[in-house]
């Protein structure tokens, strides 16, 4: 897994590539925490390079979303989600909890 982060005026863009599993998901959780600890709660997660995400990774997304949505201060928006990953989100009923958009440009434009 590789993660890159870019801070925009109105949101933070996180790009994740490769596998998010029990080995790598703590690193993604740590990055979300760093962003939120800095008082920024509008986050775009670009999933275009995401090849695989296990339940451990899905919970990282849910936990970040819980924090961001608290007090209506922001949210995590998912961009460019592959059908297979969307399938996993759908199976466990996580789809309604996230806005999912076509690409990072559209996602960044939401904020």
């Amino acid at each position: 897994m590789e993660i890159t982060q870019k801070q925009y005026k109105h949101c933070d863009l996180v790009q994740v590539t490769g596998r998010v599993d029990s080995q790598t998901s703590p690193q993604l959780a740590e990055l979300f925490k760093t962003i939120m600890d800095a008082g920024r709660f509008k986050i775009v997660l670009d999933c275009s390079g995401l090849e695989f995400i296990s339940s451990a990774g899905l919970w990282v997304l849910v936990n970040a979303q819980k924090q961001c949505k608290r007090y209506n201060r922001g949210e995590v928006v998912l961009a460019a989600v592959d059908d297979r990953i969307r399938g996993s989100l759908d199976l466990v009923g996580f789809i309604p909890y996230f806005r999912i958009v076509a690409d990072q440009t559209e996602a960044v434009g939401l904020f």
Binding site: S55, W59, K69, L91
Partner: peptide
């Protein structure tokens, strides 16, 4: 696993066997 409660109310874990 609890698949019906609002997501923010669910407890982490329990999806492995389901998947």
């Amino acid at each position: 696993p609890d698949l019906v409660s609002p997501v923010e109310k669910r407890h982490e874990g329990g999806l492995g066997l389901f998947f």
